[in-house]
Simulated assay, not measured.
Amino acid sequence: MPKVGEHLNPVVENNFKYHAPKAGQTEKYGAIREKAKELAYLIDNLCPNSREKSVAFTELETAVMWANAAIARNE
């Protein structure tokens, strides 16, 4: 926490607090996850099992997380 006399950083405050879902956000999260799942199955079916495939899955999961965070933090 900031010391006496220091100002709070609004970005830090926003990024590290709980964001309860607002109306319509749950549907947006679901839509993003469904499209990502479609891509995940495409990757799974077309790519040989490998480190690269694992990284592709990890990065796709990361993209979903950040997309949902964009909604949660900025709407």
Rank of each mutant, 00 (worst) to 15 (best):
M1E: 06
M1W: 08
P2G: 07
P2W: 03
V4E: 13
G5V: 02
L8S: 02
N9V: 04
N9D: 11
P10M: 05
P10W: 00
V11Q: 10
V11T: 09
N15S: 14
N15L: 15
N15M: 15
N15T: 14
F16N: 13
K17V: 10
K17E: 03
H19N: 09
H19L: 07
P21H: 09
K22Y: 01
A23F: 06
G24E: 07
Q25D: 02
T26G: 05
T26P: 00
T26E: 07
E27N: 10
K28D: 01
Y29Q: 04
Y29N: 03
G30H: 06
G30M: 02
G30T: 08
A31T: 00
I32T: 08
R33Y: 05
R33T: 10
K35V: 01
K35S: 04
A36T: 05
K37A: 07
K37H: 08
E38G: 14
L39Y: 01
A40Q: 06
A40T: 03
A40R: 03
I43F: 03
I43H: 02
I43C: 03
D44R: 15
L46M: 12
C47W: 11
C47Q: 12
C47K: 12
N49H: 04
N49Y: 01
S50H: 06
S54N: 14
S54Q: 11
V55D: 13
V55L: 14
V55M: 13
A56W: 15
A56H: 12
F57S: 11
F57A: 12
T58L: 06
L60E: 04
L60N: 02
E61I: 11
A63T: 11
V64H: 05
M65T: 15
M65H: 15
W66E: 15
W66Q: 15
W66T: 15
W66P: 12
A67F: 15
A72V: 02
A72M: 03
R73L: 05
R73Q: 09
N74A: 02
N74H: 10
N74W: 06
E75Y: 08
